[in-house]
Design a binder for these strands. Structure first.
Lengths: 339, 339
DNA sequence: CTGAAAGCGCTAACAA
DNA sequence: TTGTTAGCGCTTTCAG
């Protein structure tokens, strides 16, 4: 391994000078500068980031904590983070928690060990409050992405879930629906809460009843949604909703498959709106109406925010960025009520 | 920040002793050990990984270089890497190249800077040969995952693409097809080459002709596949293939959509087999027959291999791990020829 | 304008 | 059985 010493020797200058030309951090005479640059070139020298990091007490690395990169929601968010990080000269380490407590503890350890300068947390659940609170109090840079936590004073970047679900409900209502169901997701997340509450609010505002048996908890899972939907379709028509707002596109797909497997039609017998607008929602044979979440932007802004926070010396108030959602209308929401 | 010195002082021992108990690297009397542990507890001490890394000349971090985490092929592979890395106490940094030269150069820089101990490269194309060759010669640990590069003497973990495409072609033949097309992908990759060559071999072995106009290059893209497929469907029946092997499931979806948009049926008018077996392939309304690639295992084995290589002192011959594929038969491949 | 040297936090060789 | 200390590669203060 070639070090700064080798360069100094080879160029006939001190290590200080080498460092100064490399970092452009004080004047060095053209001749010496040239000699240094040439030595760097000849010996193919690259400064060691670890040594640098030890001095500078940073690593130019961010940690992205998510539950599961395999969940199609996250890759876009991760990419947003990575692009923003890269643009600022930061690397991004990926930390899947698989929703396991042990894994989130390990993630948090990374910042204490100094392996990362900040943490972007996209998997926050209520239970993490304590562990994160501690981190925040100790002054570690943290930002919550996508999911936030009540009572945690910290930067966050989230989608406007309230607006998103409201637009879905209103759209159904504009089509003439009055019996609208909601298939909810993982209970402990802010995302689920906000969408659920938004649903209830929108329904109530429109003077429409909330039927408990139409509020199905699917944990965001295709199969559970399939089952719940199949159950719903067994009810007589008057007992069934005519439309359903789904926690995500997987759930929506589960509903659609169950409806059609029981011989009914989407949207005629059951209109469906999903959430997230994943790739497949736009394909010819799915054509799922869905509330688009700006996943990439969430990741990007979160990374920018935390980098800003890391580089800024004085502290500032935690800020909350809320990004707009958009209802993307396709076929599964239908043109109106059919009977 | 609390350092080893603080612990030493607080426990009334030397820093060496602290280090020794923390790493269990030489005998320390029970009393002193206890005092140290207690100090660690009280001051909430966590050893600094950067300082450690500087000494040890490693970072316990792996770099995963891929073209685009947003491509649904990669998240599983990434997760396999992460799980294996985590199990061995390594972190994983994600490096999206977006197929840009500048980005791969940056990725390679990471290892030279000492930010990562090894690189798992899942985005290798022919053009990278030079840059990677150099790295290998300098002795940096590298493993190729999914895609390999000809003439590069280095560990690799890939799927048996040859076997995969052969099973697809044979299956079509067993169903009575003789006019079989192939929709290929990105030219520069080993994956594409192997599947293409495998296709040609399997067809030739069966005495079936290869029609150049049925070998469509789609770059693995849904839309391009859609267009190419639409063109094919404009031909009179005798000029059309009755079945098509697709480079990946996106391409297969594009074909299916185009076929049906032109008023034809899958599999009756066109039987389809995809590659990768992504999530949506298994859903009710897609039911795509597809060649499953063990994505998670590829990532997992690649990470294990490189960790092994990093930790082993003496060098060993580069090894190549080839994992089996599996044809998952669903609806789109049909039961046989229909007219 | 340039260099010597301290020191970032840790490990481990050497000494006692 | 334990402590002292050099040194990992780099930046930056201090002195010249």
């Amino acid at each position: 391994m070639v070090t700064i010493k080798d360069i100094a020797k080879h160029a006939g200058v001190s290590v200080a000078t080498v460092s100064y030309v490399l970092n452009n951090t004080r004047y060095v005479s053209p001749q010496r500068r040239e000699r240094v640059l040439q030595a760097v070139e000849e010996l193919n020298y690259v400064p060691n980031a670890v040594a640098r990091g030890l001095r500078a007490r940073n690593t130019k690395t961010l940690g992205l904590v998510l539950s599961d990169i395999t969940n199609p929601f996250f890759p876009d968010l991760a990419k947003g983070c990575e692009d923003a990080a890269q643009a600022a000269g930061f690397s991004l380490v990926m930390l899947n928690t698989n929703e396991q407590r042990e894994r989130i503890i390990n993630a948090v350890l990374q910042i204490r060990e100094g392996k990362v300068d900040g943490l972007i947390i996209a998997s926050a659940v209520k239970q993490d409050l304590g562990i994160l609170q501690e981190l925040v109090l100790e002054g570690y840079p943290i930002v919550l992405a996508h999911r936030r936590i009540q009572d945690l004073q910290v930067d966050s970047v989230v989608a406007d879930n309230f607006q998103g679900v409201t637009s879905a409900v209103r759209y159904f209502i504009s089509l003439g629906h009055t019996r609208i169901a909601m298939f909810t997701g993982v209970d402990e997340t802010s995302v689920n809460m906000e969408r659920k509450e938004g649903f209830i609010k929108a329904m109530t505002d429109a003077g429409l009843p909330i039927r408990q048996e139409w509020m199905c908890n699917t944990l965001g899972d295709y199969q559970l949604a399939y089952n719940a939907s199949a159950n719903l379709m067994r009810l007589p028509w008057e007992e069934r909703p005519t439309a359903v707002v789904c926690m995500n596109d997987m759930v929506a797909l589960g509903v659609m498959d169950a409806v059609e497997d029981r011989g009914y039609q989407v949207p005629a017998d059951m209109a469906v709106i999903g959430f997230d607008d994943l790739f497949f929602a736009g394909t010819q044979r799915i054509q799922l109406t869905s509330v688009r979440i700006p996943r990439y932007e969430i990741g990007q802004q979160a990374a920018r925010l935390i980098i800003d926070r890391i580089q800024r010396t004085k502290t500032m108030e935690p800020m909350e960025i809320v990004l707009p959602t958009q209802l993307v209308v396709r076929k599964t929401s239908g043109d109106g009520i059919y009977r």
